[in-house]
Write a protein that binds this DNA or RNA. Structure first.
Lengths: 213, 213
DNA sequence: ACAGCGCTAGACCATTCGGTCTAAACCACT
DNA sequence: AGTGGTTTAGACCGAATGGTCTAGCGCTGT
C-alpha cells in the first residue's frame, strides 16, 4: 500500500473537507473514502474530527506551498517575474480543478471554517497556516527582487481570487469563476507594468492595509 | 413586531447561513435566533431547511442588488465611473462586516453550498441568483457607458474579491482580508485608466472567458 | 512459541439532527 | 358569541452524527 493509514485518512479528509466543508463532512464519509475503520481513526487522531481537520488543513497548506514553489520555478525559467508566478499559480488551480473531478486543491479556509465552539482554535490554526504561506511568498518574491510588501500583496490577491473563484465555482458547479481568476491575476501583472511604463510609483490607496493576514 | 414570522425566519436563516454555512446551521439555531417555534417554520416553509435556505439566499441576493444600486448612485454623484462603484461596493461590504458583529452581508455562495443530494438543485438556484446580479451590473454599467462585457467583468472581479476576502476573513476571524479587497478593486480602476492613458485597448488574455457565470 | 504492543474492526452509546403531528391559540367575519 | 381557517406551540420520532470501547489481529523481539 502506498500510503499509511494516517496519510490515507488525512488525504481523504482534506479532499472531503475542501469539497463540503467541516460540518457537512461526516466521519463516516471520511472513513469510507479512506477505506479505514473507526478504530484506526481514533487511534491516529485521538482528538477526532477536529484533530483530523487540522492535519488535513496543514497538509493542504503544504501542498499549496509546493504549488507556489513550482509556479515560481516555471516563471523563472520563462523569464517572468513574481506576478507571472502568481498567474501561473492561478492557472494550476484551474487545471487541478478541471482535472481531478474538481476539488483536489488547497483552500485551507474551506477546511477550517466551522463557526461553533472550536472556532477560536481553528482560527488560530488558520492564521498560522496563512503566515506560513506569507513567509513562503516573501521568500520567493525576494528572489525576484520584490519587496516584502509587494510579494505579500501579490500573494494575497492571488489567494483572494482563487478562494473566491473556488467558492463560486463550487456553488454554481462550474469551473468558470476560477478560470477568470487567472485573468484578474494577469491584470495585477499589467498594472505593475503600466506603472513602470508611465513612470509611476504605486499610488496611495484610500485604505492602507497592515502586513498581517 | 416589525417583521412577519416569515421574514424573521428568512432573515435569521440568512444571517446564520452566511456565518456558518448550510450544514453547520441547525434548524434549532435558526428558530432560537428568530424567536419562532418549529411549527411555524414548517408552516411557512413546508420544504424545511432547504426551502428556507433558498428563501434566505434570494433575500441575500436582493440585498446585494440594492447595495450595487446605492454604490452606483454614490459613484455617480461623485463623478466616478462603474469601477468606482465596484470599489464603493467593496467598501460597503467591509463596513458592514465591521459594524454588524461581522456577518450581516450577502455571499449567496455561503448560503447555498452543500455538497450532498440537494447540490444540483442549489446550484441551479445559485446560478439564477448570480444571473440576476449580472443583469443588474450590466444595466448599471450601461448608464456609465460601459460595455456589457466590461461591466460584467468588473462585477465578477468584485464578487471574487469579496467572496474570497469574506471567506478568509471568516476563517481567520479578522476583517483585514475583506479590507484588502477594496485595494485590489481600486487596482481594477487604475488598470482601466492606465490603459486609456497609454492608448491601449484591453489586451488579449491567455484565457478568454465566456459571458455566463 | 510466546509475550508484548501497535493497530484495526466494528458493535455500541448518547446526543443531536431534520422533520412530523396534534392541540391550542389567534383572528377575521358573520 | 360562534365558526372556520390560519398560525403557533412544543412533544415526539426515526435517522444519523461524533465518539467510546473491547476483542482480536498481526508484527516484532526474545
Amino acid at each position: 500500500m502506498e500510503h499509511s493509514t494516517y496519510q490515507k485518512l488525512m488525504i481523504a479528509a482534506a479532499d472531503l473537507l475542501r469539497q463540503k466543508g467541516y460540518a457537512a463532512t461526516g466521519i463516516s464519509d471520511i472513513l469510507a473514502q479512506a477505506n479505514v475503520t473507526r478504530g484506526s481513526l481514533y487511534h491516529h487522531f485521538p482528538g477526532g474530527k477536529s484533530d483530523l481537520a487540522v492535519a488535513a488543513a496543514r497538509y493542504s497548506c503544504s501542498q499549496l506551498v509546493k504549488h507556489i514553489e513550482t509556479a515560481c520555478e516555471v516563471a523563472r525559467t520563462n523569464g517572468g517575474d513574481f506576478h507571472d508566478a502568481m498567474v501561473e499559480l492561478c492557472k494550476r488551480v484551474y487545471q487541478l480543478f478541471e482535472e481531478h473531478g474538481n476539488w483536489r486543491f488547497l483552500t485551507v479556509s474551506a477546511t477550517l471554517q466551522e463557526g461553533g465552539e472550536r472556532n477560536a482554535f481553528f482560527s488560530n490554526e488558520a492564521r498560522a497556516l496563512y503566515a506560513r504561506l506569507k513567509s513562503k511568498a516573501v521568500e520567493e518574491g525576494a528572489t525576484f527582487g520584490l519587496s516584502e510588501r509587494d510579494s505579500f500583496m501579490a500573494l494575497r490577491k492571488a489567494l483572494l481570487l482563487v478562494e473566491g473563484g473556488w467558492m463560486l465555482a463550487r456553488v454554481v458547479d462550474d469551473p468558470m469563476p476560477i478560470r477568470s481568476s487567472i485573468q484578474f491575476m494577469e491584470e495585477e501583472k499589467q498594472v505593475y507594468r503600466y506603472r513602470k511604463q508611465l513612470g509611476l510609483s504605486c499610488p496611495p490607496f484610500d485604505t492602507e492595509i497592515d502586513p498581517l493576514f
